[in-house]
Simulated scan of single mutants.
Amino acid sequence: MKTKSILKATAMAVIVGGTPVYAQDMDALIAAATDDGMLSTIALPHSWCGYGDVIAGFKEKYPDIEVNELNPDAGSADELEAVRANQGNTGPQAPDVLDVGFAFGPQAKDEGLTMDYKVATWDTIPDSAKDADGHWYGDYYGVLSFVVNTDLVDNVPQDWEDLLKPEYANAVALAGDPRASNQAILAVMAAGMAMGGEAGTASGEAGLEFFSKLSEAGNFVPVIGKAGTLAQGATPIVIAWDYNGLAWRDTLEGNPPLEVVVPASGVVAGVYVQAISAYAPQPDAAKLWMEYLYSDEGQLGWLEGYCHPIRFNDLAAKGAIPQEMLDALPPAEAYEQAVFPSLDEQAANKEAVTANWDSVVGANVQ
């Protein structure tokens, strides 16, 4: 008899602030997840948001659950496609859990690609960053920044307009394909807002025009930027989340030296969200993974990877954040102008960017 049936019998609904929260019997959940025996993740590079240590922490805590890591470099659109393509597939190719950009959460729910689940710390997640029914919930956020190889770039750009200067020929790359990657889509939004476009369709259109100019100037490199391309000099400047840039800086250990700059304008903050696939072959392992991520331990794991966890304010209020973690973050004033676009604004921007990148910019990022 599978232990999943025990879990169903021991789950108990309670009310917190008028919202139903499902308080799991953790012993039963651990038993059911152990019975699953495996957790299939997707799109979790170890250098992204401290995921290498987060995954290691989960393995150490639950050694009987194998973590099957699918396509670490996938974008948010790729994650949803993996769920669509593996409906009914109980093999290791099917992801159990998703970590996607904010705008992709509602899309996944609308398509029936997610299941509802509310973690024990549900009430400490801001209402603005979660689906009321529990289909998706914010996990962490950061801001778009310039990650610069200072061995190759003498004058470090401080704002978006700087990137158009001739001195940055064949130097500037995105950290993803703007037709599929949430990071890249929001980078176009940030550039568009710096150019005066309001968040939404206008920012997408203005951002496309900016990247068209960048490409025409010979400054845009149609290669997905990452630590390796920075180190090799293929992409001396990469537009990426601040936490990715800071992690790459640590990984490269000064060879070459990297500088991470939050631009003076167009500072866009992006929230990512977690979800469980509606077709998860290992649903209980997926639920246990969520409980781990949203525990204090999991949230601090993201913070150690330079991401602001969604429960940051709750952790800070109860003094749960070690001072050395706070000291390792960029100065607070770098984030003062950060804009958190709404779901509607992100959706409108995403539609403008993904539908028109090829016709306006014409650069095949890969």
Rank of each mutant, 00 (worst) to 15 (best):
M1C: 04
K4N: 05
S5D: 10
A11P: 00
T19P: 01
A23E: 10
A23D: 11
M26Y: 08
A28H: 06
L29Y: 07
I30A: 05
T34D: 08
M38S: 12
M38Q: 13
L39F: 03
G50N: 04
G52E: 08
D53C: 00
A56S: 10
K61P: 03
D64K: 13
D64V: 03
I65W: 08
V67A: 08
L70P: 10
D73Q: 11
D78E: 14
D78Q: 13
E79F: 08
A82I: 09
A82D: 03
G88M: 11
N89R: 08
P92K: 15
A94R: 07
D96A: 07
V97M: 08
G105N: 07
D110F: 06
E111N: 12
M115E: 13
Y117S: 07
V119F: 12
V119G: 10
T121H: 13
T121K: 14
T124A: 11
P126E: 11
A129D: 15
A132N: 11
G138F: 06
Y140Q: 06
Y141A: 04
V143E: 00
V143D: 01
L144K: 05
V147Y: 02
L152T: 04
V156Y: 01
Q158G: 06
E161K: 05
A175I: 03
A175P: 04
G176F: 01
Q183C: 04
I185C: 05
A187C: 02
A191H: 14
G197Q: 00
E198T: 15
A199L: 02
G200E: 06
T201D: 13
A202Q: 12
S203A: 15
G204N: 09
L208D: 10
E209S: 14
S215C: 03
E216C: 04
F220L: 13
F220K: 09
I224A: 10
K226G: 07
T229E: 12
T229F: 06
L230C: 07
A231F: 05
Q232K: 14
G233Q: 12
G233C: 14
T235C: 14
A240R: 04
A240M: 11
Y243V: 09
A247E: 15
T251R: 09
L252R: 06
E253P: 02
N255S: 15
L258W: 11
E259G: 10
V261K: 15
V267Q: 09
Q274C: 09
Q274V: 03
A275I: 06
A280F: 05
P281K: 05
P283F: 00
D284C: 02
D284Y: 04
M290D: 09
M290I: 12
M290H: 14
E291I: 09
Y292F: 15
S295H: 05
G298M: 01
G298S: 04
W302F: 07
P309A: 00
F312I: 01
N313L: 00
A320V: 01
L326C: 00
A328D: 05
P331T: 01
V339A: 10
L343N: 13
E351M: 11
A355Y: 13
A355P: 08
S359K: 11
G362L: 13
N364Q: 05
